[in-house]
Amino acid sequence: MSADHHHDNELDPFAARVRALETILTRKGLIDPAAIDAIVETYETKVGPRNGAQVVAKAWTDAAFADWLKRDATAAIASLGYTGRQGEHMQAVFNTPDTHNLVVCTLCSCYPWSVLGLPPVWYKAPPYRARAVIDPRGVLAEFGLELPARQGIRVWDSTAELRYLVVPLRPEGTEGLDEAGLAALVTRDSMIGTGLPRLPA
């Protein structure tokens, strides 16, 4: 950033305001700087869409788990060790040959962090938030996803209390794969609904 062009240090205004808040909140005992660093590390390195891929792969291979996931996604996902920190409930929405599911948050950017990590930039940007509801098929086309005309699209609008995880259809030709092999096919976008799982090599 601009610091490269100065001999002295320079904080941009946003960085300075964040430091100001950190100072105020630390003085008041409301945050602990070490805890802040730990949260950053968790979300940068430990929480991500691999968690969700494990959930999907287990649902593909274990009918009892899939049934549990349909009925009580919050508990089924927690059983794998992935729990939300915002007290949110999870709902798993299963794609079928007749229905493709797509998740958006028109309010702001609610997203199932515990299974997908933090949302991609486009998920948080106004065009996706506005258009996913109005023209889902057009939005999917921009992602390179052309669905059969007979397959309807159902759009799910996330809230602070309820987040959605799309369970895509298991690709054909994956009968011989175990859970780990299947999880490797499950992309982040396929769990938001803007993509499909990879095909087996």
Binding site: A15, V18, L21, A35, I36, Y43, R85, T187, D189
Partner: peptide, 29 residues
């Protein structure tokens, strides 16, 4: 709207700190 390119979670460190402060403040109510 770019397709699913894996971009970094945070573009600059202050963004990560602002994010984490919200998570921490929520945790303590």
């Amino acid at each position: 709207m770019p397709p699913g390119v894996e971009e970094p979670v945070f573009a600059e460190p202050w963004q990560a700190q602002a994010f984490a402060m919200v998570v921490a403040l929520h945790r303590r109510g």
